[in-house]
Design a protein around this nucleic acid. Structure first.
Lengths: 339, 339
DNA sequence: ATGAAAGCGCTAACAG
DNA sequence: CTGTTAGCGCTTTCAT
């Protein structure tokens, strides 16, 4: 009977037909997938853990791109994709425990997130992407330091020395405002930490004292947040010649705020982003393009490719500096004040 | 032991702590979610079936909106969301059988899709959204006939009589080109069928012979498809004064094609869409706004709201005609030729 | 508070 | 080709 459903080749087509028909007549709804999974030890699905509310994944274009890539890989392998409802507000890890999956992909999660810990305790393979800085687990990402250093070098060449930074959340607690150097260094989001460190190094190398560089953090990753963050920077230091944002979404917000204040971009203010989302390229934002779709696909393939790897594998994807129309040399007057 | 994990209240905290610690020391990874699901008869997840390749769901803004709403509802209920990899090319229904879920949401699927049939055979509740025209199952959608009739009336008032239509795929077979009235009537995608029928009725009421109205179908739902479809219409009948598209994506393509041909919109050609996606509203497309996010949320809530309903429930959401800048009265010269 | 046992529905292995 | 059986890991019930 089981064979009729699972091994069409093991019995005659005629018999199979008869069995199936009888089963249907008896109201048998087909094999229970859960019982089957228990027996075969295969759930046929990949779990995805995000730090944000589930719905956020569909609002952030970069996350959507990642999901598209991941779903592509799942489709190739005939696996389902289970979005795990891990609300970051609550510490409720139960959803991770309840997920019937053969493996996890963890995307954009702080390294001290209890959900991440719960995933790592599960006896299934895991691939982390971007944020978590976890040992002994497969990982896919980009070279965040080098990627944003390219932006920094570009601005340095243009002559910018008086800069401000807008970054995404650095830890699980909400901290909308200026960020101490200590908080930067202790950031639990690996990507943000790496980008800030690289900016500090690169600008430090040309004599910019990083402790004097204002960095503003935003918990919510929205265009509106980017705008208020840029406003905060400009309020404190109206002489900034450039605002570096660690994401395009924030960068688009900074652009809006500049326009709102009557600042011309790039004549009066340079703005940069990070990610290379469509909206940003359309706005001409100078940014770093990263292959978000490829990241998702690579993560999925790594997970599904069951070559039992002795040591954790790492996939590092390429990025590209995109010169848009939002960065230019600072106005001469600014350079007279400069260091 | 089971109690230690599931009923913290049934035993002393001290004991619980001890049990858990011992378990961990023994390398026990926590209760197996699949075995638990088998026993409790709850998978803790909702399955989503789409007719397209999984990854398509992340490329179409309307689908993304639907997913956002659905994930919102899942999150509320603490349920996971399992994207079922149902490749429409293959007839492989196994993925539906393997899905360990407590219910299904079916979105944008033709009424003769074998995946849909497989879902309906599973002994779990199901909610269909938009496309499938299935009896005795909960449904959420909009009044497609009335929604597009509003567009038709608007164009009629403006004076358009010589129109063409671009629609999405009408059945599972690829048919990129003009559509016979019969194929329109037999369309397996309920939404497309309803919209075409409403257009026929509304224009028919003012004396436009529907058999003379060219309708072009596209299998792929992309901007590029919309462009070539519009081109096909204009090639056959350069005197068209308006092109009605059954989606914004197609409408954006039609807009592109018009520009490419040097046709001014709306002076030389009127173009309309359907959905109300952001990109369309930004382009000023005259369209019908439908609450895609609400549709997803409503579908999820309907599914999760376990009030055992005697009869199937239906949720019909409101739509709104959005007057953009892509529709205007046809040029006088056209009217001279008109019927 | 703890232990023992039944059984969820299936698949894989083996005997006929 | 067909029928029988053990057991996947859990939760629940009942007995101690």
């Amino acid at each position: 009977m089981s064979n009729a459903y699972n091994r069409p080749d093991q019995l005659s087509p005629e018999l199979r037909r008869r069995v199936l028909e009888t089963a249907r007549r008896l109201g048998y709804p087909g094999p229970d997938p859960v019982a089957r999974s228990l027996r075969t030890r295969k759930a046929g699905a990949v779990g995805l853990l995000l730090t944000e509310n589930l719905s956020y994944a569909f609002r952030d274009p970069a996350a959507v791109g990642f999901l598209e890539g991941l779903s592509l890989a799942c489709e190739e392998a005939g696996q389902g994709l289970l979005l795990v409802p891990a609300n970051p507000e609550r510490e409720d890890v139960a959803a991770v425990h309840r997920a019937g999956v053969d493996g996890f992909v963890v995307y954009s999660v702080p390294d001290d997130d209890p959900h991440l810990a719960a995933v790592l305790e599960r006896p299934v393979p895991t691939v982390v992407c971007d944020q978590p800085d976890v040992d002994s687990v497969d990982r896919v990402g980009i070279d965040d330091r080098e990627a944003i250093a390219a932006v920094a070098r570009h601005l340095i060449e243009l002559g910018h020395r008086r800069i401000g930074v807008v970054c995404m959340r650095l830890a699980r607690d909400r901290n909308d405002g200026f960020v101490s150097v200590q908080r930067q260094r202790e950031a639990h989001f690996h990507v943000q930490r790496a980008r800030l460190a690289a900016l500090a190094d690169t600008f430090g190398a040309v004599g910019v004292e990083w402790t004097n560089v204002p960095v503003v953090e935003r918990f919510d990753h929205t265009i509106a947040s980017g705008a208020t963050a840029a406003g905060q920077l400009l309020d404190r230091d109206p002489d900034l010649t450039a605002i570096i944002c660690t994401s395009d979404i924030l960068g688009l917000g900074a652009l809006n705020e500049a326009h709102r204040r009557g600042l011309r971009v790039p004549q009066d203010l340079t703005v940069t982003g990070f990610d290379g989302i469509t909206e940003a390229e359309r706005a001409g934002l100078t940014t770093v393009r990263q292959p978000v779709l490829e990241k998702g696909r690579a993560a999925g393939r790594l997970l599904m490719d069951n070559a039992d790897h002795g040591r954790p594998r790492t996939v590092t994807l390429d990025t590209e500096l995109v010169i848009g129309t939002t960065a230019a040399a600072p106005k001469p007057v600014d350079q007279w004040y400069g260091p």
